[in-house]
């Protein structure tokens, strides 16, 4: 394999990994606060369709990403009101959010179907990326760098700040946090809104550098893979990074299977299904480790009702 090809592969992996990484980072914070939001896929679709609409209307990528984050965050607040204020079942409500996101994006995206979305290219001057070696460093879309920075930010927030400590405490024992005097519901709202924003930005990745057109359900289950990834990473940001890039690798097989005869030993459908099969396999492997089941925040998915 030539250096050119290897570099192209690395860049493709990073691209495929980024939306999963962003969405999973958001969900990790949500779950650390004790909330399970299964609506990631739906929020990603909302983010994606808003990105398409804003980019095609204004041509401003940054504005598009911000709008995507806001819209997805807003949709996550519907989930928040239901599960946190009205203590509805989190699993069912998360599913409802995904159904809503799918329906909303299909409806809202209809006028934009088939229109090319201008790509969001590397923020660095193109001269830097002419040499293949330099391209490994400077050849990515800004969202790829953003995701990497967010890994560090989320880790730092959870482990090094007092606010992160409080957030973890709320997810660990909501009743104790309440009796010490922390606003459990308020903190969870913030976490859910952050998770929504991150899922929205994850959705932006699709039109901005993965599939530069609006297609219904273009996230094809990446939101669900992000959820699995959080479990796989045992709620640790840096392990999430490794996991996301592993899944990125699983996903590029489908692309290369189309052009490279070496993949023809198995049907192309197998390579397309590989990320999903890998997810199942990885979930099994993680469960074999004792840590896998106990690393979960103790209050994950349980509704909190304050007395008095």
């Amino acid at each position: 394999m030539s250096t050119e090809l290897i570099i192209a592969i690395i860049i493709t992996i990073a691209g495929a990994a980024t939306p999963i990484l962003l969405a999973a980072l958001g969900e990790l914070v949500v779950e650390k606060s004790g909330v399970l939001n299964l609506g990631v896929e739906g929020m990603m679709l909302i983010g994606a369709v808003i990105t398409v609409a804003v980019t095609l209307t204004t041509g401003n990528h940054l504005l598009a990403v911000v709008c995507a984050a806001l819209a997805a965050s807003l949709s996550s607040l519907i989930f928040g009101v239901l599960t946190l204020t009205l203590s509805a079942n989190q699993v069912a409500t998360g599913l409802a959010l995904t159904i809503l996101g799918t329906g909303f994006s299909a409806l809202f995206g209809q006028p934009y179907t088939g229109k090319d979305v201008p790509l969001l290219r590397s923020p660095f001057p193109p001269e830097l990326a002419t040499d293949p070696i330099w391209r490994v460093l400077f050849g990515y879309s800004p969202l790829v760098y953003f995701a990497l920075i967010m890994v560090v930010v989320v880790w730092w927030f959870l482990q090094k700040t007092r606010a992160g400590l409080i957030l973890r405490a709320v997810g660990e024992n909501d009743l104790s946090a309440h009796s010490i005097g922390y606003p459990v519901i308020g903190i969870r709202y913030l976490a859910v809104a952050f998770g929504g924003a991150m899922a929205g930005i994850a959705g932006s990745c699709f039109p901005l550098f993965l599939t530069p057109q609006w297609v219904e359900r273009l996230t094809t289950g990446r939101g669900w893979i992000a959820l699995a990834l959080v479990v796989f990473a045992a709620w640790r940001p840096f392990r999430l990074l490794a996991g996301a890039y592993f899944f990125g690798l699983m996903m590029i097989f489908e692309i290369y299977a189309k052009t490279n005869s070496a993949f023809r030993v198995l049907p192309s459908e197998f390579w397309a299904a590989l990320p999903y099969l890998a997810t199942v396999l990885v979930l099994v492997l993680i469960s074999l480790r004792r840590e896998g089941s106990t690393a979960a925040p103790a209050c994950l998915g349980k509704p909190f009702v304050a007395t008095g």
Binding site: L82, A92, A96, L100, T102, A106, E216
Partner: peptide
Amino acid sequence: FAAVGIFQAMMLFLLLA
């Protein structure tokens, strides 16, 4: 037709609420 999905999601949300 996608509007149908939104109506269905609304039904579910309102029921859960």
